[in-house]
Nucleic acid binder design. Structure first.
Lengths: 143, 143
DNA sequence: CCTCCACCTTCCCACAATGGTAAGGTCAAC
DNA sequence: GTTGACCTTACCATTGTGGGAAGGTGGAGG
């Protein structure tokens, strides 16, 4: 199966399949005489696994760990569950933070008339410092 | 005031202040004879505005728009409120998506013993395709 | 056989925002 | 005068993804 077919079947773009291979997330694909990558049912299963874990918001590093656990018959289910629960806790924290932000934004918007007048408490308020300390960066969330 | 002072006072790293200037988000800072950037109270206010809007999760592009609205005395408060509400709707959508993902993850984790045994329904389940269609990318969320 | 189109290959560029680091200039205090 | 804390610019890395160029391949229709 060509990379295009594999992509269509798994929802992972050809671009990303090549990228995953290049960074070692996936093993090197088999090649046909013409140099084209060739995918079989097992490869498709792996790609589906990747697609699904990505959809669930795991980073490529985490996906890599999950793939390793997947193929390791001797691993304990504890390790897998641990990874999943860490991820859940991460999501919970992020949702909490986003909710706090929404609350603030709603309060700001509430006091703004939103009409033709130029008076706007949102901007006035944004100019005042509220939070302090250096900001922390956070990982991207995907849908 | 040196960039270091400005940074300490606003919580925006010196690195980022220079970056914001380089991409045109901020106007070129005044320079002293030795080439050092020099910040006054008005500059500090702008930096605080940026810091605060960034904390609320607005992208630099949105911050730029807000800054423009801030200095535009003739704009209607409707425009500002619109921007804020679009952002709130965006947050709501992302939270909904993250919650859906959490639900799935919790269900998966629930069926996994998480002990020394290797049997693990999480991995078995991840191998089966669930969602379909190409994946969409999403903007990073910051705290 | 030739041409055309769809596919494949590799390689490089871009994005958003941020941090790191190196190589050098400056300034104040001791 | 030296030391150390600051400033300057410039380049590289990150995370995951898309876009595009330049070229090879393969099959279908003329």
């Amino acid at each position: 199966m060509n990379i295009g077919q594999a992509s269509a079947r798994t929802g992972v773009s050809a671009k990303m399949i090549r990228y995953y291979e290049s960074i070692g997330l996936l093993p090197s694909a088999a090649r046909r005489a013409n140099g084209y990558r060739d995918y079989g049912d097992q490869d498709i299963a792996v790609l589906q696994f990747v697609r699904r874990t990505r959809d669930l918001g795991f980073s490529l590093e985490e996906v890599s760990a999950l793939l390793a656990l997947w193929s390791d018959k001797g691993r304990s289910s504890r390790e897998v569950k641990q990874l999943a629960e860490t991820h859940i806790a991460d999501l919970e924290r992020r949702i909490r933070e986003m909710r706090a932000v929404m609350k603030t934004l709603r309060e700001l918007a509430q006091h703004c008339h939103g009409d033709e007048r130029s008076e706007c408490p949102i901007l006035d308020d944004l100019a005042k410092p509220r939070t302090q300390g250096p900001r922390r960066t956070q990982r991207a969330v995907r849908a």
